[in-house]
Design a protein around this nucleic acid. Sequence first.
DNA 1: CCTTGACCTTCCAGTCACGGGAAGGTGAAT
DNA 2: ATTCACCTTCCCGTGACTGGAAGGTCAAGG
Lengths: 129, 129
Amino acid sequence: MNIGEAARRSGVSAKTIRYYEGIGLIPAAGRTASGYRAYSANEVETLRFIQRARSLGFSVDEVGTLLELWRDRSRASADVKAVALKHVTAIETKIAELESIRRTLLDLTNRCCGDDHPDCPILDGLAAK
Amino acid sequence: MNIGEAARRSGVSAKTIRYYEGIGLIPAAGRTASGYRAYSANEVETLRFIQRARSLGFSVDEVGTLLELWRDRSRASADVKAVALKHVTAIETKIAELESIRRTLLDLTNRCCGDDHPDCPILDGLAAK
DNA sequence: CCTTGACCTTCCAGTCACGGGAAGGTGAAT
DNA sequence: ATTCACCTTCCCGTGACTGGAAGGTCAAGG
């Protein structure tokens, strides 16, 4: 299977597959006689794993760790859970930051009448505190 | 006032001030005879404005727009409000994404007992759907 | 047999918003 | 005269890609 087909089946773009190979996240794919990369169903499965992990916000580094655990049959599920829970904490921190920002912005925008006049509590709020 | 002092008073690092000057977000600062950048209280105020806007998650580009509006005495507050509300929408989208991810991850981690055994619903969830 | 078009290859550059660090000049105090 | 903190410009690296150039390959149609 060529890289384009692997990309279609995995949801990871050809460009990104090559990138993952370049940084060592996945081993270098086999090649046809003419130099085209060739992928097996197994490798596509790995790419799908990576795609799902990335879509859950894991960094490429964390995905590397998850891949290792995935391939390691003697892993402890506690190790996987630790990675996932650490990520959950990071996400919750980020959500809290965004909600704080959201509250501040809504407070400012609610106080701004938003008409033709120049007076603007939003700019005032940014200018001084 | 030297750049270091301006940095301390504005909360924007000296490195970042030079960067902002380089990309044209702020006009080039005046210079002393020996080539040091010199800042007035006014310029520090601008930097503080930028710092607050950035800390609310506005992109540097959006900050540029806000700065223009700030300096434009004939602005309509509606224009400012539009920028702010667009940003609020973007933030709310981001929050929704993160909460969706959080729910998925918590669902997976709750089903993973996290002990010495290799069986792991988290990896299974990433591997297939 | 030739061409067309859709593939594939490598490599370089750009994104965003900076931070690190090198190499060298300046200012003020000791 | 020296020390030391400050300043200058310059280029490189970050994360996770995406875009694009220049060129090779493959299968089908004329």
